[in-house]
Amino acid sequence: MKVRPMPETDGAPRRSRSQPRRSHGTSARGGASGDTEASGREAPLYGALDLGTNNCRLLIAKPARDGFRVVDSFSRIVRLGEGLSRTGRLDDAAMERAYDALMMCGERVARRGVEPARLMAVATQACRQADNGAAFIERVRVGTGLKLRIIDPIEEARLAVEGCLNLFDQNAEAVLVVDVGGGSTELSWLRRHEGGFTLEGWMSAPIGVVTLAERHPEPANARNGELAGWYEEMIVDMGAAIAAAPVDPALRTIFTAGRAHLVGTSGAITSLAGIHLGLRRYQRNLVDGLWMTRGDCEAAAERLKALGPEGRAAESCIGPDRADLVLAGAAIMEAVQRAWPSERVRVADRGLREGLLLQRIREDRKPPRRRRRRGRGGQPPAT
């Protein structure tokens, strides 16, 4: 798998807290907004729906010159995988929350006029793992008309990489994309070669923010020292899950030498970015593309621990729905940074949905195959 960088996305990437830049609209992958195709016809709408262990997310977009322009979006925390690690099944209340969110997604898709053939709808770890995952997907199909496809971990990792390509530092020798989900974490290692980055290896660890938080409930009324021990337990747990990375051990030398960087995609890293920037409200154009150091990430995690559950819930970049999960996400990032040392981390408020859209738009732009000319009598012409 060889991947090449794309033009920058909306909300130009940030390099430091002291260099603010404005967002330039909602075009992804840069270029003109491109509401019409080359033929002059109105560009069709595409949709990408991602039902994860923790979130239900939808993007509706129009193709643009170098990617797409977002027309509508939806995100809701549903915690579909709540309790799954204990029971092996999707909980009834969790399925109701997810079903309600999917109903809203279906209504948006219908209202915007997205054709079924241009809606890519996928489900990930919770539905992969649960005994009743396939049954829930069928219920959604019958009740909402949405046809979700349960994707395997390698496709999930590949789509996350696809959505983050233009955040790669082209001078880096290697990049590790870390996609932290609710029920699993996908890691993708890429090495720079002539003409782009090549996938060197990947793995899916069956630990995400929901599963890790359920394994290690936050101690009530704990002092800071006690929280430190609890937090360290989460880091060690995740570290054990990623210890046997299926890549050449020599690749780690590139990271320890400072010639590589991480790309974090998910709420785990965007929450740390929001705390690091001190945002009073979440602003994607300031977060997406931000460069953070390992020290920045650790400092943000320390601030989150000091805030306590109520303080985290009051933070606009976190909120009450994620207050009990955000430190699990920070612990996962810390475990990865210990295993694959990198002073630089780039924040991605993008990933699987963007990868779905870019993949499908690219496929539709391919010229149709030319039919082979046939000679008289229906036989191919002589050569």
Rank of each mutant, 00 (worst) to 15 (best):
P206F: 03
E37W: 10
G295F: 02
R29H: 14
S75L: 14
R373H: 13
L325M: 10
G88M: 04
A160Q: 02
H193C: 13
R252F: 08
A98N: 02
A174N: 08
G229Q: 13
A299H: 07
D50L: 03
S204P: 11
G274H: 01
E107A: 15
M6Q: 10
R370G: 05
S75R: 14
L358E: 06
A43S: 15
E82G: 06
P206I: 01
R259I: 00
G239C: 04
G378F: 04
R280Y: 00
G143R: 14
I150V: 15
H193K: 09
S27I: 15
G163E: 04
E8F: 11
S27L: 06
A110L: 07
A222V: 01
A228H: 11
D296R: 08
P63G: 09
A330C: 12
M6T: 14
G239L: 03
V345S: 12
Q19E: 15
G267P: 07
T256D: 10
A98V: 00
L272E: 03
M292T: 03
Q170M: 12
L212N: 03
L148P: 09
W189H: 07
G295P: 02
R111Y: 08
E42G: 09
E298R: 11
I269H: 06
S33T: 13
M95R: 15
R149H: 13
L59P: 14
P5A: 14
A323I: 02
G181V: 00
T265Y: 07
E82W: 01
S271L: 01
G182Q: 03
A228I: 06
A110Q: 12
D364L: 11
S271C: 10
R29E: 09
S33R: 15
A331F: 06
R360M: 12
G30C: 11
G267R: 03
V177E: 02
H24F: 09
W340V: 13
K305G: 03
R312E: 04
N132T: 00
Q125H: 15
R365D: 12
M234C: 11
A335H: 06
S188K: 00
E298G: 02
A306L: 12
I151F: 05
R97S: 13
H216K: 05
Q359E: 15
G308H: 03
G25D: 05
V161P: 11
M238S: 04
E200Q: 13
T36R: 14
Y231E: 05
P5M: 08
I151K: 06
F68H: 13
E354T: 05
S271H: 10
A335K: 07
D169L: 01
E162Y: 06
A335F: 06
R14G: 12
A339V: 00
L148T: 04
A43E: 06
D92N: 08
V78A: 13
H24T: 14
R303D: 14
L176Q: 05
R4W: 09
R97Q: 13
L325K: 09
L80Q: 11
R4N: 12
L227F: 02
N54F: 11
A28F: 14
R128A: 11
